[in-house]
Each structure stands twice: as structure tokens, then as C-alpha cells.
């Protein structure tokens, strides 16, 4: 992670964009007292460094009945990255992390159908070669969570696009 350190301007940019992702470069520039080229360049650099990303959420994703559950997995350490990648390829798995602790892999799932979650955990993951033990826990409520701060694992494919 060779990321350039952030300065105050970067942080102000991130704050403004967090409030309105489609605010124009012109407005950002005027508000922050810099020129548009600077804004464009900064946003591009933050995206390239994997520190900032933009995405569209639709009402389909905003299903009120959506549930979160966690799966702790004990698996052979030799192929841990392969196992993690195979799990990550499945859409129900929204976060896949390799961890050091009582488990090797922690998976966070989003689902609406408990049966599908159980099938994923107890049939698919448990049947994978190298996986020995899983523990599931279903989130009943989120007491604290910020969905706007994430780990950006895929850097934006930048093709010179900027909002004007």
C-alpha cells in the first residue's frame, strides 16, 4: 500500500463528496478556494490510490428486510488465499477477510432468505476442501456501523471521467 499521505485538502474533499457524491468539481473548487484542475487531479489520485470510490446504490440494494450474518471458518492455512477467493466469488459473501485468531477466515453475508444463508454456510463452505469447522452468528441489530467507510479492494477503472 504505497499511498501518498493525505493532507487537509484531501480530507475536505472526502468530506464534501461524502455529503454529495455528484457535487461538481467547479463547486468543490469554489468552496475550497482552489482551482478545478486541482480538484480533478486530487479526486483522480485518491481513486487511483484506492482511498476513494464512487458507486450507485439502487432501491433493490436498500431492501429493508436484508439481514447480516457472520461466518467464522477454520481452514487449512496452506491454501487459505484460494479458499478465501473462492468464497469471495459468491455474491452472498459481501466481506471476506483472512484473519489470525480462532478462525482463519471471517465472512460477512447479506441475505434475505435464512435458508439460502444456511445452505451457503453449511453446504457450500463446509464442503470446500481444506475447510474443517465453521461457526455462524446472525446479526440481530447493528448498534454502530458506518457504511461509507470501507476497505476499497478494487480500484476504480479510471478512464479520464470526471464530473464537471
Amino acid at each position: 500500500m504505497n499511498k501518498a499521505p493525505l493532507d487537509d485538502l484531501d480530507r475536505q474533499l472526502i468530506d464534501m463528496l461524502a455529503q454529495d457524491a455528484r457535487v461538481s468539481n467547479r463547486k468543490i473548487a469554489a468552496d475550497l478556494g482552489v482551482n478545478e484542475g486541482t480538484v480533478r487531479g486530487r479526486i483522480k489520485r485518491l481513486q487511483q490510490d484506492g482511498l476513494l470510490a464512487f458507486t450507485a446504490i439502487t432501491s433493490l440494494d436498500l431492501d429493508r428486510d436484508i439481514r447480516i450474518a457472520f461466518i467464522g471458518i477454520q481452514a487449512d492455512i496452506e491454501n487459505i488465499r484460494d479458499v478465501a477467493r473462492q468464497i469471495a466469488a459468491m455474491p452472498i459473501a459481501r466481506a471476506v477477510m483472512i484473519v489470525a485468531g480462532q478462525f482463519n477466515i471471517m465472512v460477512t453475508c447479506l441475505f434475505t432468505d435464512l435458508g439460502k444463508f444456511h445452505h451457503f454456510a453449511a453446504d457450500r463452505i463446509l464442503a470446500m476442501p481444506g475447510v474443517h469447522h465453521i461457526e455462524t452468528s446472525i446479526a440481530v441489530s447493528a448498534v454502530k456501523y458506518n457504511s461509507r467507510i470501507v476497505r476499497i479492494t478494487e480500484k476504480a477503472a479510471l478512464d479520464g471521467e470526471d464530473a464537471d
Binding site: 477467493r85 459481501r94 471471517m106 457504511s147
Partner: peptide, 17 residues
Amino acid sequence: SIVLDVIKYQFESGPQV
């Protein structure tokens, strides 16, 4: 559990708690 590597993290569309 110490997080060593994040393979996937897609929460933009997670629940707005």
C-alpha cells in the same frame, strides 16, 4: 481476530443502520 488481508469488502449497499 487480527485482520491480515481483506479479500472482498462490499458494503456500499449494506443495510443503512
